[in-house]
């Protein structure tokens, strides 16, 4: 009897906790692409000491990690608010690690060159940012993308 009571009590306490886990965004930022799944942090969570992680299919040849100071807007396969694009990293940069992006290894986005600068940047906080990852095949076709997630830089 005691056991049954204890189980009911535990369930009653855990259910509200489960309801607090937010549904993660699923809409890929670019139409007609295959998914790159984001791992951590979850949507609307603080960035701790751990890097931002994601899982990339092996057929993706080139990866771009993007950090925006506003929600990411796209049309078809093009980002339409490049002014919100503040930092990121990509294949080809020296400190780029596929699948894992630390705050310290971000590079500022250059609106003129439409690419990242070689030097690093550390976006300030506390601020809300949006991040996403997209990938290209060996011909330069945009074939993969992730959903967007909001992250709070403390």
């Amino acid at each position: 009897m005691k056991k049954t009571f204890a189980l009911i009590l535990a369930g009653a306490l855990l259910l509200p906790a489960c309801n607090q886990i937010e549904e993660q965004p699923k809409t890929l930022i670019f139409e007609g692409t295959k998914e790159i799944s984001l791992t951590l942090p979850l949507n609307n969570q603080n960035l701790g000491t751990s890097p931002m992680t994601y899982s990339v299919p092996s057929e993706v040849k080139f990866i771009v990690f993007g950090l925006f100071n506003a929600d990411i807007t796209t049309s078809g396969k093009t980002i339409t608010n490049p002014t919100a694009f503040v930092a990121g990293s990509r294949d080809g940069l020296a400190d780029f690690v596929r699948g894992s992006q630390t705050r310290a290894s971000l590079h500022p986005y250059n609106q003129a060159t439409k690419d990242f600068d070689a030097g690093n940047t550390n976006p300030g906080g506390p601020t809300d940012y949006y991040w996403a990852v997209w990938g290209y095949d060996q011909y330069g076709n945009l074939t993969h993308s992730s959903a967007r997630r909001k992250v709070v830089f403390p």
Partner: peptide, 8 residues
């Protein structure tokens, strides 16, 4: 190419 803003 349009840089890294998506598809060329």
């Amino acid at each position: 190419s349009q840089g890294i803003l998506g598809e060329p």
